[in-house]
Amino acid sequence: MLDNLTLDQMRTFVAVVEGGSFRAGAARLSRVQSAISHAIGNLEAELKVPLFTRTGRKPELTAEGQALLADARAILIKVDAMRARARGLGQGLELSLAVAVDPVIPPGILAGALFDLRAEHPSVGVALKTLPMRAALHALINRHCTLAITTDTQRDSLVEAECLGPAQPFVAICAAHHPLATAPAAGWSAVELSDHLQIVVSDPSPMTEGLDFGVLSPGTWRVSDLATKLALIQAGVGWGNLPLWMVDADLARGVLVRVTATAIGAQAETALTAYLLWRIDQPLGPAALHLRERLVVRFGQGV
């Protein structure tokens, strides 16, 4: 019989696993360590299997614990979603809506969806936060926003995701007077590309600490925003990847050119897909739901 299992026991189990120790689990749940140990002991007694080995400095998951961890997480996600849905029943219109947006999202599509939101719900205020890389996801996980719009594919178990559609691609570009502007017939090799300074945007969140994405040159300058990155590339300081919507006019005028390199593909571009994210335990109100609907429509229309 498993009727005596409690959600509290399962939350404690997951907290210990995610924290890495009984002490860390206690800190996460703001409890004393003895209460955590007691809850885990009761859970093991109810399940009749050991969840942790306790011979080392830190408790290690047993094979049984590893198998049951996914079940515990799935149950807690379902319960959180049920509570969120219950809180959302009969919920009134939001006073304001905080939205985190990856700056590579085409601004015309975003502005169009926000225009639609304003027309439908003029009393709702909007706080728009432009956060690059995985900072938008980080803000959502930490409840600093209600919705996040991003092209990042990393996910969290507390986050629901909906594909909005293709966003304009990232393209590798440099100034027309930059040495990379005139490529050999086969394109620049990765070794040749690494001889030139690359301008990259740093992720302000801790979620990619120590990791680099799309960085091919050992020599880099790091900036905090796309506008600064574009200005440095236009000046010929280095090369880099930028969303096509941001550079298509300069490409058409010949101020910028695409970098042709075997390491980044024949078209020197990376396809991007936009996603809308929200927490499963935070119900979406009428304004958030309307914005979600309009984003789907706008991305579908490309405007």
Score class of each variant (00 low, 15 high):
Thr182Trp: 00
Thr182Pro: 00
Ala183Asn: 04
Ala183Ser: 13
Pro184Thr: 10
Pro184Asp: 03
Ala185Asn: 10
Ala185Tyr: 07
Ala186Trp: 00
Ala186Val: 01
Ala186Asn: 08
Gly187Ile: 12
Gly187Ser: 05
Trp188Lys: 07
Trp188Met: 03
Ser189Ala: 08
Ser189Gln: 08
Ser189Pro: 02
Ser189Asn: 02
Ala190Met: 02
Ala190Pro: 00
Val191Ala: 15
Glu192Trp: 01
Glu192Ala: 11
Leu193Thr: 10
Leu193Gly: 04
Leu193Pro: 07
Ser194Pro: 06
Ser194Ala: 15
Ser194Leu: 05
Asp195Ala: 14
Asp195Thr: 12
His196Val: 12
His196Ser: 13
His196Gln: 14
Leu197Gln: 05
Gln198Met: 12
Gln198Tyr: 07
Gln198Pro: 04
Gln198Thr: 06
Ile199Gly: 06
Ile199Val: 15
Val200Ala: 13
Val200Ile: 14
Val200His: 04
Val201Trp: 04
Val201Thr: 03
Val201His: 00
Ser202Ile: 12
Ser202Leu: 06
Ser202Asp: 11
Ser202Val: 11
Asp203Cys: 09
Pro204Leu: 04
Pro204Cys: 06
Pro204Phe: 06
Ser205Gly: 00
Ser205Pro: 02
Ser205Tyr: 04
Ser205Met: 02
Pro206Gly: 04
Pro206Ser: 10
Pro206Ile: 11
Pro206Asn: 08
Pro206Tyr: 07
Met207Ile: 12
Met207Asp: 15
Thr208Phe: 02
Thr208Ser: 13
Thr208Trp: 00
Thr208Val: 10
Thr208Met: 08
Glu209Cys: 04
Glu209Arg: 14
Glu209Ile: 12
Glu209Asn: 09
Gly210Lys: 05
Gly210Arg: 09
Leu211Gly: 01
Leu211Tyr: 10
Asp212Phe: 07
Asp212Ala: 13
Asp212Ser: 15
Phe213Ala: 11
Gly214Ile: 05
Gly214Val: 06
Gly214His: 10
Val215Met: 09
Val215Asp: 01
Val215Phe: 03
Val215Arg: 15
Val215Gly: 06
Leu216Ile: 12
Leu216Gln: 11
Leu216His: 15
Ser217His: 10
Ser217Asn: 09
Ser217Met: 05
Pro218Gln: 07
Pro218Arg: 09
Pro218His: 11
Gly219Ile: 12
Gly219Tyr: 14
Gly219Val: 14
Gly219Ser: 15
Thr220Tyr: 00
